[in-house]
């Protein structure tokens, strides 16, 4: 097979792809990291967070939704895109209540890891400080909506994998928010289980499994030890070997 037929070019590096793969999938497999939040290898592309915005042959596109195709020249690591990504992360920070020092997920949180990766020193914008009550009604799982970034991974996992449709995104614009499908609106009144896929896909600290939060101390966690971009490249390399 000739290289050009089945390869895209990402920041001047040839990246092979299989038919049907998105730009993000192909790049990650080749160890070329493109930041992303709402994308997950086990779920269909969603395209809402826009962190994976890249330039494909001069046009802006979401790497997680656009299929790779021969002839694509893709820019990922440009100063402009880097700044956009940081601004998008800042928007997600001020939209919710993200107090990392008080969050069990700190160090394992993808939003935080991407903020580190984009050298975010401040959320920058005026804080919205929304009022979002915590749901601790379930015996094994806590939901802290303050940290929700509306990636809808829990919605997708519960509907498509668990077959329970326990979560839904409702509302419009800034009023959009996740709700729980039970008469009381509480997780404790659903048949949600800690074994559900939806209990394990939250990229931030919104859905937390109880009683394990500090099993690994702060400072020794996943993204404390390694930047999210470096981890992605290393994992791809190990898979190839």
């Amino acid at each position: 097979m000739s290289g050009t037929e089945t390869a895209i070019v990402v920041d001047e590096i040839p990246v092979p792809f299989k038919p049907g793969q998105t730009i993000l999938e192909a790049a990650l497999e080749a160890g070329v990291y493109i930041p992303h939040l709402c994308a997950h290898p086990e779920f269909a592309p969603h395209g809402s967070c826009k962190l994976c915005t890249v330039i494909v042959n001069g046009r802006n596109a979401s790497a997680c939704t656009l299929k790779a195709a021969a002839g694509q020249e893709i820019e990922v690591d440009t100063p402009d895109l880097h700044a956009y990504r940081r601004t998008l992360v800042q928007m997600l920070f001020v939209e919710g209540n993200h107090f990392c020092p008080g969050c069990e997920k700190s160090g394992n949180c993808q939003l935080q890891a991407l903020a580190y990766d984009s050298e975010m020193m401040t959320p920058h914008f005026v804080e919205f400080y929304p009022h979002r009550p915590v749901d601790a009604s379930h015996p094994d799982v806590l939901i802290d909506f303050n940290r929700c970034i509306q990636c809808e991974l829990c919605v997708r996992a519960s509907r498509d994998v668990d077959g329970k449709s326990i979560f839904a995104l409702v509302g419009r614009g800034m009023a959009s928010h996740i709700v729980v499908n039970s008469p009381s609106g509480k997780l404790g009144d659903t048949n949600f289980s800690v074994a559900d896929k939806a209990a394990h896909v939250c990229p931030v600290g919104a859905i937390l499994i109880k009683r394990v939060g500090y099993a690994v101390p702060i400072g020794e966690r996943r993204y404390d030890l390694e930047a999210i971009s470096e981890e992605a490249s290393r994992c791809a390399g190990e898979e190839v070997r």
Binding site: F93, V94, N97, H98, F99, C100, P101, G102, M121, T122, P123, E127, Y129, H131
Partner: peptide
Amino acid sequence: VAIGACAINGGLPAMRNR
């Protein structure tokens, strides 16, 4: 220079904001 979580986004004291 704003130093630390509280100076930067209100931090723990800002949890009273609601």
